[in-house]
Write a protein that binds this DNA or RNA. Structure first.
Lengths: 155, 155
DNA sequence: AGATCGTGGTTTCAAATTAAAACCATATTA
DNA sequence: TAATATGGTTTTAATTTGAAACCACGATCT
């Protein structure tokens, strides 16, 4: 489970989150959780994955603080799996994935599910990256910079 | 390679993109590509993954139109791997992942690499989801809706 | 009470995937 | 000519996955 996803000792800002999420299944579980699914059986039915795998993924998500278990709300002696704050923080990522999918995996007129504003039922806006001053940024307009190294740290 | 990631016949708006990307390694390759890496050896050195795996992942990314091979720009008889438009469309996803990582994987004062505006060297803004009218939306403020079904389609 | 069913798992085991290492091909360098 | 660098492929063992069987527990039916 603690598979090393990078050879560097400390995982970078992309690899560390990836490592925590676990794998594709986990992301689909999280999506289902955003859709309101909470029970083991619900996830299994929705995703059609083996129970042992689901079990392992849920355990991993809980271990990483992305989901949490709570006693079932309907009186049954089971537990439910809900997103923590950390888990809910993944919403933009799912939106980005969905929007990318809309852009490149469907014909312009092909019907597909859409994410809409609950209040107005209008599609949500595209995610866009902006500078502090509000300018839109493309990938080429950005750089990744290392933190200033503290005294005594030399590479 | 064509691993079924969902039991549904047509993969949904989240699963289909995931399926195309392939796996975590692919996402790290894509990140490196955004950082300017282009050569097989560069990716391998950066990621430290086995050559056969890198080979397979690159092949998959090319097959899915996320990367493309071009003749090496330096006269050597090799090829380089570059992001297509489709591949570049993944930038927001990487930003979302990075910002989530910043939020939950580093202490508030822990130094970490940052994505900055190349022009001003200021950190970029957070990605935020907005409605058509500009209101910020949280996950709970949205719903996924199915497309209207064409005549003759009944579930 | 006893049998059966639904839910939520774990265990087992075969099959698929991954990863390390060895190998290979080509071109450049010494 | 030999050695080395790049960019892979092949081989093989170890790991992971996934399907199915099994198990535990409580509720329900007879």
């Amino acid at each position: 489970m603690a598979k090393r996803v990078s050879h560097k000792d400390s995982l970078c800002g992309i690899a560390r989150p990836l490592d925590a999420i676990g794998d594709w299944w986990s992301l689909l579980i999280i999506r289902d959780a955003f859709d309101g699914l909470r029970r083991f059986g619900e996830f299994q039915k929705s995703l059609g994955l083996a129970k042992n795998i689901l079990s392992a993924r849920l355990r991993n998500l809980v271990a990483h603080g992305i989901m949490d278990t709570v006693p079932a709300s309907d009186g049954t002696p089971y537990q439910e799996y809900v997103l923590t704050q950390k888990g809910q923080g993944l919403f933009p990522l799912l939106v980005a994935l969905r929007q990318w999918g809309e852009d490149f995996f469907f014909e312009p007129d092909e019907p597909h599910v859409m994410l809409v504003d609950r209040a107005t039922h209008m599609p949500v806006r595209r995610l866009e990256l902006r500078a502090q001053d509000g300018r839109m940024l493309m990938a080429e307009d950005t750089v990744v910079v290392a933190p200033p190294l503290a005294a005594g740290e030399r590479e």
